[in-house]
Write a protein that binds this DNA or RNA. Structure first.
Lengths: 333, 333
DNA sequence: CTGTTAGCGCATTCAT
DNA sequence: ATGAATGCGCTAACAG
């Protein structure tokens, strides 16, 4: 009388071995005689046995789950990081369990607790902004933790990303070398995007070191988008400050800026140079490839997973991986 | 002697009640005297108790997990669906467990098995193309199943999406009414994207019904992208077929086509009209908003979750939800 | 409203 | 190379 899906013990009975032997075959762990392995495999096949991972997780006190906390799914950048994570997880038995924090530490804390309840093998999150509760939880716990995107602060365990401050500084240096004199900046809400702020800080530092400054800025208070970049650049240019280059908080915004120039017959680069951040595909397919800084989102996700899975235990020393960035010359600046 | 994180029984001991009472408080299930609830809450707080969901899943034979299988993370469309799913899951205790199939049914099957091992409350997948194993597994199992994006076939349990065939047909009708005569088509690899093929079928049917036909087509064999749209339109136009409108397999491709026109000084709409599919933000921020068909990706994810969570049991009749589509007039056609 | 009794399905000892 | 015993932490089903 089958009373539900087949279990380990059903397989064991059919194969004429003990449960633990089946368990070992399933997990490919310990040594098994080729013969018994075959017998067991046949029984599994015959019954259509599917291991119950909840039971496995309970018995072994840890699961093949990786908790992933992303700030947003609206910004292409995070799906790309997730792609990297997924790539790193390929050919392992791990699965990503995801939560979207909407850049909100309180929500992050709730999601973190909820995900931690699954006893994941590791937690991947973004940035260094966490509630004190979350921080304490993470510090106390023994799970491995990766904080992605940014390496401008000390991580709990592992940080993988780039220095946004240095990327901003490099942007400034690059544009100065190109001879630009009057800088404008178009940004989005950085209460929610700390890294955009770090880049602007770096940019300003570079200008200051060269005796220059950002002549005019304009911010939206929503998230970044092409629409916003378009609108904010329009607003900025109304003020007639004779800018010769505008730096945007990221590529989405810059692409919007490019569209504004097209609509308004502003010759990009000759009349007004544009500069972004991220190196998204869309920017590179514009009639004039966008000048920008390439961040390696995919690599960030992938490297993080590799490091986390390399060691069960959290090492005594913190790991910081710089995935770097490169100036993409493009044709808009 | 604390030997690990606190468990239900630790909380129960501290609160002076039985385990099941604590369990009920935690799950907010059954009736509890306000007083005991407070005592238990205090004990939980004091110990920093975190429920172990793996144990819960094992004991109750189902988890607060929703298995989500997405074809890709590179195409913005799927993160948007995921956003919808996430929105539907908000304020529930459910978490999405995700797998990326890369449009590969074999991989989908493997991931499906792997995700099913967690005894998820429901499975969300894409389209109707599954291996026979996967199909059998899903049919046999009692989990609820939603197949997203498309409603052109019969689902296993629930389908949420739009008729791509009808969307294609509507595109054809619309363009015919606008007076276009010579139609071109630029597509990407549809061995992997069945829905793009359905739309083309619909388009061709509409043209045929009006005594017309697609004069020339060009396909790339990779996935869709702006770069590809740009390149394929260039190739198509080299053949000098005097097209007056080109329909693209989706907005990404169409935006690429738009960029090509800009680079080649082709006056969009006057010289050559362009038409896409999806209604992505990027298309609408172009200097000329893209003419396209809006699919409601976010809504598809959200509705699917709502339906799945409404009933534990799979109803005897299949559910098909049409999230519809709308022609977006735009300025490019 | 609260408690008792019994597992859920598997993996970890430690044997042999 | 294989097995026996035990328990992981929780919840269902019934009592009361």
């Amino acid at each position: 009388m089958r009373k539900g899906p087949p279990t380990l013990s059903d397989v064991a009975r059919l194969a004429g071995v003990s449960e633990i032997t089946v368990s070992r075959v399933v997990r490919n762990k310990g040594s098994i005689a080729p013969k018994t392995r075959d017998v067991v495999a046949a029984a599994i096949e015959k019954l259509g046995y599917l291991p119950n991972r909840a039971a496995g997780a309970l018995a072994s006190a840890n699961s093949a789950l990786i908790a992933v906390l992303l700030p947003s799914l609206s910004n292409v950048v995070f799906p790309e990081v997730l792609r990297g994570i997924n790539e790193g997880l390929k050919d392992t038995r791990y699965q990503p369990l995801i939560g979207v924090t909407e850049y909100n530490p309180i929500l992050e804390e709730q999601l973190l607790f909820s995900l931690l309840a699954w006893k994941p093998r590791a937690v991947i999150t973004t940035g260094f902004e966490h509630t004190s509760n979350a921080l304490r939880m993470l510090a106390t716990s023994t799970v491995r933790v990766a904080e992605l995107m940014d390496i401008d602060s000390q991580p709990i365990d592992v940080a993988v990303g780039l220095s946004h401050r240095r990327a901003g500084y490099a942007t400034g240096r690059h544009l100065i070398q190109r001879g630009y004199q009057r800088f404008g900046y178009v940004g989005h809400n950085w209460h929610k995007d700390v890294r955009a702020k770090l880049r602007l800080d770096g940019l300003q530092a570079a200008l200051q070191d060269a005796g220059k400054t950002v002549s005019d800025m304009e911010f939206s208070d929503g998230p970044s988008s092409t629409e916003t970049g378009k609108a904010m650049l329009a607003t900025l240019l109304k003020r007639k400050r004779q800018l010769d280059v505008v730096v945007f908080s990221n590529d989405d915004m810059a692409v919007g800026g490019f569209f504004h120039c097209m609509s308004s017959s502003i010759a990009v680069k000759r009349d007004l140079a544009l500069f972004g951040f991220n190196g998204l595909e869309i920017g590179q397919s514009l009639p004039m490839p966008l000048s920008t800084v390439r961040s390696n989102r995919f690599m960030i996700g992938k490297r993080a997973v590799e490091i986390l899975l390399a060691n069960d235990e959290r090492p005594s020393s913190k790991t910081v991986v710089d995935t770097g960035f490169e100036i993409v010359e493009g044709e808009t600046a």
